[in-house]
């Protein structure tokens, strides 16, 4: 059986009284010809890369190779204790931007699910793991849950900004992170599903409009927002709030909205923020003419 709907996955987990990650690991071990231990060990290495990128970006001001962005993760980290949103949300957001800063500087990251949205899952997951005193292995289990959500979105909608806009990249990353965080916090598989729906609904229709075509403006800040929204989506679900529209229908709607977006708003740098006077000016400065 392949994982092609959230309902199927949640049902399977409920029926066997197991976590989503446990079902996913068992099935992927069969599909990929690896043992569950081997899968976990590989994912632990990926998690290590995520942590290293987040650490680099919150403790140093990292600048992009184009020079148009830098230091966002570092700055918000400095404000994390005194900020209005509370330290968990701010640390998650700071780490997400930190990883994005590392990405824009040609540093090492894990595409999750894409390079453009690579900060959201590490930002949310590392911070919640720290807050709840969980182990790396538990965090990695949650990554399998995130990956399953990503696969279901890829099968029923899309994960590519060029196809579905930013909702498909940062929106999906936020939904994946939300499900991971619900599981890590001890929520039920069904609550993880509702969290996916909340995260996607929050950004439905969000366009992909990178200034000068670079993975920087507005991508880095959208990563910061995506991590914060993932935590809110998880908290809503953990509080017992349910999505009126079933999560699988939300995913399909996101894909359909993506198809309706004009070409200018799908990673072509021809619309949205990329087409503002300042956006065009930056384009000229970086690439000339």
């Amino acid at each position: 059986m392949s994982i092609n709907s959230l309902e199927k996955l949640i049902h399977l987990a409920e029926e066997r009284n197991r976590k989503i990650s446990s079902i996913v690991k068992e099935q992927k071990a069969k599909e990929q010809g690896m043992t569950e231990r081997e899968l976990t060990d590989k994912m632990l290495k990926y998690y290590e890369v995520m942590k290293q990128a987040a650490n680099r970006g919150v403790f140093e001001q990292i600048h992009s190779i184009s020079g148009i962005t830098g230091g966002e993760g570092f700055k918000l980290w400095q404000a994390a204790e005194k900020g209005l949103s509370g330290s968990v949300v701010l640390k998650a957001s700071a780490r997400a931007m930190a990883v994005s800063n590392v990405n824009a500087s040609m540093g090492k990251i894990v595409a999750a699910p894409t390079a453009g949205s690579c900060g959201i899952i590490p930002g949310a997951l590392i911070t919640v793991t720290e807050k709840l005193n969980k182990s790396d292995e538990e965090a990695v289990d949650a990554l399998f849950t995130a990956a399953a959500v990503g696969e279901i979105i890829a099968r029923n909608a899309t994960l590519a900004g060029a196809e579905g806009g930013c909702q498909a990249e940062c929106g999906s990353a936020s939904a994946m992170a939300a499900a991971a965080v619900v599981e890590l916090a001890g929520g039920s598989p069904r609550q993880a599903g509702h969290a996916v729906a909340f995260a996607l609904k929050a950004v439905m229709g969000m366009v992909c409009d990178p200034v000068a075509g670079l993975v920087e403006v507005p991508c880095i800040k959208r990563n910061g927002m995506g991590a914060a929204q993932a935590l809110l989506a998880a908290d809503m679900a953990l509080a017992g709030i349910e999505s009126v529209i079933p999560p699988d229908e939300v995913i399909k709607a996101m894909g359909e909205v993506g198809c309706m977006l004009p070409q200018q708003l799908r990673e072509t740098a021809l619309g949205g923020l990329a087409a503002t006077p300042t956006g065009k000016e930056i384009q000229k400065r970086v690439f000339g003419g």
Binding site: S2, Q32, A104, S105, I109, A154, L214, V215
Partner: peptide, 17 residues
């Protein structure tokens, strides 16, 4: 689908393509 195509690859940024 390979799970490490969804979370992964480990790569140097900024762009997969």
């Amino acid at each position: 689908m390979n799970i490490f195509d969804i979370i992964g690859p480990v790569m140097i940024g900024p762009s997969s393509s």
